[in-house]
Design a protein around this nucleic acid. Structure first.
Length: 286
DNA sequence: CTGGGCTCCTGTCAGC
DNA sequence: TGCTGACAGGAGCCCA
């Protein structure tokens, strides 16, 4: 079942698995069908390693591993378009591990239970790396923009990042090389909150509007994390709990419906870079 | 360097 | 009921 996670869904997932996994010892690893990239290490060689505190960078989750209290690399996970992680405590986890479903492509069986990646489309990935500074982790993270809650991220940062770029501001936000985390839903939502037409060339967005947009990005992503993510179809965190940010969505997926703010305009749907964009042409100006 | 398009893969849903 | 095509929350990669 698709999950389609953006930063809030990844963060909520991370939070839900961090405590159960911290300090757990790996007993066995099972890989299913190929994901986006190969694991890069023999699965059984991870047995005996202890899991540290799960971290997040952009839409990646980093699981640090230790052997005898010494850093021993880790696993970089990405959920792609349809991935979700589930944690199943000891007894249930053992039973589940014995009979994986057709879309369960990575199992980390540890003494505390089972961490399972379910990913029908297999755009997700689990990649072994000696450390965040080592290949392949470093190359996957190298081009990522700043975190939205990093103090460096503000209107000036956006304005500088947009400078000289002719792509539409929606696509520049989505690209993730200026600021990470805003995927298709939250990029649309942030542009709505900031009152900016998604078709505007990024480089032509004024400094004051960049200030509003930066605030909107932080606001939308922060509130989405607080709400446990967006469950439009079936996103669940590591314990199977759905999010509720869909209750606050203003434009995404609302083509033809009246704008929640102005009431008069209808929400429009256009395509930018093969991705759908939703906006209110009355509230969002050029 | 930038921009644009393609690609990986499977499931679901609308329309005929 | 069954088939077909569009579409899906990502993002790396290749080429002009």
């Amino acid at each position: 079942m698709p999950a389609m996670p953006e930063l809030p869904e990844v963060e909520v997932t991370r939070q839900s698995i961090a405590d159960p996994l911290a300090g757990a010892q790996i007993r066995a690893v099972r890989v299913g069908k190929p994901l986006r990239w190969p694991l890069g290490v023999a699965p059984q060689s991870l047995a005996g390693l202890r899991i540290g505190d799960a971290r997040r960078r952009g839409k990646y989750i980093w699981l640090p591993l230790q052997r005898a209290a010494h850093d021993a690399g880790g696993l970089l996970l990405h959920l792609g378009m349809s991935g979700s992680l589930g944690f199943h405590a000891a007894v249930a986890g053992d039973a589940l591990a014995a009979r994986p479903g057709p879309h369960d492509h990575f199992d980390l069986l540890c003494d505390r239970g089972l961490l399972r990646l379910t990913d029908p489309r297999r755009f997700g990935a689990v990649v072994w790396s000696e450390g965040l500074a080592q290949e392949p982790a470093a190359s996957l993270l190298a081009r990522l923009g700043v975190e939205p809650f990093d103090p460096r991220f503000d209107g000036a940062w956006l304005h500088q990042g947009f400078k000289g770029r002719s792509v539409a501001v929606k696509q520049a936000l989505l690209a993730g090389d200026i600021v990470v985390g805003a995927g298709n839903i939250y990029a649309c939502e942030a542009l709505f909150l900031a009152g900016i037409d998604p078709r505007l060339p990024a480089g032509s967005v004024s400094r004051p509007r960049c200030e509003r947009l930066a605030a909107a990005v932080r606001d939308v992503l922060g509130r989405a994390v607080q709400a446990g993510g967006t469950t439009l179809r079936d996103f669940r965190d590591g314990h199977g709990i759905a999010g509720s940010y869909q209750m606050q969505v203003m434009v995404y997926g609302r083509e033809g419906e009246p704008c929640h703010r102005c009431g008069t305009g209808k929400i429009r749907r256009i395509v930018q870079g093969q991705r759908a964009t939703y906006f209110c042409s009355h509230c969002q100006k050029r």
